[in-house]
Amino acid sequence: MKPIPPLSEMNMQIAEARIPELAARAGRAAHQRALAQAGKVVMAANGQLVEASADGSVRVIHALPPATKVRKGTVLTRKSKSD
Rank of each mutant, 00 (worst) to 15 (best):
M1S: 14
P3H: 04
I4D: 10
P5D: 06
L7N: 08
S8F: 02
M10Q: 13
N11L: 14
M12I: 01
E16C: 09
A17Y: 02
R18L: 15
I19W: 07
P20H: 08
P20G: 04
A24Y: 06
A26L: 15
A26M: 15
R28S: 11
Q32C: 06
A34L: 13
L35F: 09
Q37L: 13
Q37E: 15
A38P: 02
A38G: 03
A38L: 13
V41Y: 00
A44H: 07
A44I: 06
A44G: 08
A44V: 09
A44L: 07
N46P: 01
Q48S: 13
L49V: 04
V50T: 03
A52C: 07
A52Y: 07
S53H: 14
A54K: 14
D55H: 04
G56Q: 06
V58D: 01
R59G: 01
V60H: 02
I61A: 09
H62E: 05
H62V: 04
A63S: 13
L64A: 05
P65I: 00
P66D: 11
P66K: 00
A67T: 11
T68G: 00
T68S: 06
K69G: 10
K72N: 14
G73I: 03
T77C: 09
S82H: 10
D83W: 00
D83Y: 00
